[in-house]
Each structure stands twice: as C-alpha cells, then as structure tokens.
C-alpha cells in the first residue's frame, strides 16, 4: 500500500514538470517579457526605460535558461526558468503586482473558498444522488420522464442565469440575505447560504442525470435480479445493492474534485464578493497579473494529481476486488 502511494507520488513528478514546462512556455516564450511589459504599461507610454524598470521590478530582467554572466551553478539559478518556474516546487511563488506575497495570500484566502466549496460539494452530492435514486425507483413512469426532462432543462440554463437570477430574486426582491460580501466567524452564514444554494442548484441537473445513468446501468445486472428473486424489497435492493455497487463509478468523478475544492469557484466568488481563491484568480486575470495566474495553475495541477491518487486509494476502500500492488 505504502509502496504504491510512493510510486504514484513519484509518477506525479514528471507530470508536474510537464505542467511547469507548459506554463513556462506559455508565459515566457510565446511572449517575451518585453511584450508583456509593453502591454501592461500601455503601448504609447512604453519607453525602453519604462520597460526595463517594469522588468527589474518583477524580476523579469534575467536571461531565459542560461545566464552566461554568472559562474558555476549561478549560471543556471540566476535565470527566469529557475526563478519563476522551478521555485514553485518549493511553493515560492514570489510577489503579486501589488507587492504582496502570493503564498501568504493563498493561505489567507483558502478558508473563505472552502467555506463555500465544501458545503456545496456535500449538499449537491447528497441531493443529486437522492434525486437520482428517486428517479430510478420510479423508472419508466411519468415521474421519471418528467424528472429527466427537468434535469435536461436545468442543464441547459447558463450558470450565470442561476447566479444573477438568484441574487435578484432572493437578495433584491425578497431581501432575505445580503447581495454580496463576507465576514469571518458564525456571522458568515448569512453571506454563505445563497451562494451555496445557487451552486448546488446550478449543478443539480447534470449530476443527477449522470448518477441516474450509472444506477440504471447497475440495476440491469444479474445480481440485482437475483436479489429481487430472493424476495428483497425494492428499497433494500436499491440501497443495499445498487447504491453500494454504483459507488465505484461515482467515485471516479467525485474524489478527483475534492482537492480542487480548495481552488474555490471563479464565478460564484466573484459575483458574491467572497475573498477566496476564485475571486483572487479572476482579479488576477482581469489585472493581467501573470505571477498570480502562474501560481494558481501550478497549485491547481498539484491538487488535481493529489485527487487522482486519492481516487485510486478510495477504490481499495469501496471495492474489495481492487488490490493496489
């Protein structure tokens, strides 16, 4: 078991190096730092001195891969690639354009992101599995048919509509909760309840339909027929047999996103002015703060790989047939 985890962790290293190379290529080779400086300063005001100052301020004034002005290992370490790319492995992300330390900022913003993402995740998992089970229980009836129609209709609505419409209805028309904002502590509840509900609602259609297909595939198998023939009630069959066996395909989709919950949600956080990582990313995109975007790309990939490993491990927990050797 431990050996397997270690091997998987080792396998993650080349993937992270690949991610790192791609981001480096995207941010430094497609466009030279000079181009970025010109764009940030504004094409009209971009004098060579201003560009140079911009690059020095952000540490972009070093050569790309090899620094011939230095000697020894400094030839490799005093370069953009080492500074901006390799240092990320040590979780050193440098400073954002406003001068703050990115790593510090990320730590501070994780809590609000999780405060939205975790309840959303649990609630939507529970609701969509319950709804899917309900549809499967009433399969091939009108309830099932209209339930699926409802799911498809809910999938077809833009997530922007859920957010804008929900804010307008609940916060403006009914004035139940504040439109946006955030505080720490228990008081945060009234700021969190609407974004959580809206995110759950926005994802319900597609996930409920997805779980329904999984359950239906499971329910047509022979062991289910045997269980029914034994005289078990439909409810027992659904919960004891179908649900437990369907957990395996459900896990593939679910476990991998758990670490990514730390990243927060871009849209919801920016609409509700939650100071989490999602709104941090959006602000960075809008301000074209490349350092922050690069840091988020790296963290996102790390979390995704952790999710992959967790998925494999979770199989051993739910499926005794799977042995990790």
């Amino acid at each position: 078991m431990l050996g397997y985890v270690l091997r998987r962790l080792l396998y993650a290293v080349p993937i992270l190096i690949g991610v790192n190379l791609i981001t480096f290529l995207l941010f430094f080779v497609v466009n030279s730092p000079d181009d970025m400086a010109r764009m940030q300063i504004g094409v009209k005001r971009a004098t060579p001195e201003a560009i140079e100052r911009w690059k020095v301020d952000r540490g972009y004034d070093k050569p790309m891969f090899v620094n011939n002005a230095q000697a020894g290992t400094a030839r490799l370490t005093e370069t953009l690639f080492y500074d901006k790319s390799l240092r990320m492995f040590a979780l050193e992300f440098g400073r954002a354009d406003d001068g703050r330390d990115i790593a510090r900022e990320i730590l501070d913003r994780m809590a609000p992101s999780l405060a939205i993402a975790l309840p959303t995740f649990i609630l939507s998992l529970f609701l969509s599995i319950s709804f899917a089970l309900l549809l499967v229980f009433f399969r091939a009836t009108y309830l099932d048919f209209w339930g699926v129609v409802l799911c498809v209709a809910m999938m077809s609505v833009s997530s922007l509509f859920y957010i804008i419409g929900g804010q307008w209805l609940v916060s403006k028309l009914w004035a139940l909760v504040p439109i946006s904002g955030y505080t720490s502590g228990l008081d945060a509840f009234r700021f969190l309840v609407l974004p959580v509900l809206i995110s759950v609602l926005a994802g319900l259609g597609s996930s409920a339909r997805w779980y329904r297909t999984i359950f239906l595939e499971e329910i047509s198998k022979d062991y289910v027929r045997t269980a029914r023939a034994k005289g078990l009630s439909e409810i027992t069959v659904l919960f004891r047999h179908v649900l437990r066996n369907a957990l395996i395909p459900v896990l593939t989709g679910v476990v991998v996103v758990i670490p990514l919950l730390f990243m927060g949600s871009l849209l919801v956080e920016s609409f509700f002015a939650i100071p989490g990582l999602g709104s941090y990313t959006i602000d960075a995109i809008n301000a074209q703060d490349f350092a922050v975007v690069r840091a988020m790309v790296f963290i996102g990939s790390v979390l995704y790989i952790i999710g992959l490993i967790l998925t494999d491990l979770s199989y051993t927990l739910v499926d005794p047939r799977v042995r990790l050797e």
């Binding site: 995207l26 941010f27 074209q288 975007v293 790309v297 995704y304």
Partner: peptide, 18 residues
C-alpha cells in the same frame, strides 16, 4: 492536470498580447 479555466485564461491572456 492543468485546471481548464486557468489554462484557457493563461492562453487567452498570452494570445491577447500577441
């Protein structure tokens, strides 16, 4: 492994510069 939105954001920002 790269979160989709971030890869898109990074690529679009770069394309914008080009």
């Amino acid at each position: 492994a790269i979160p989709g939105v971030l890869l898109i954001a990074a690529a679009v920002l770069m394309m914008q510069v080009v």
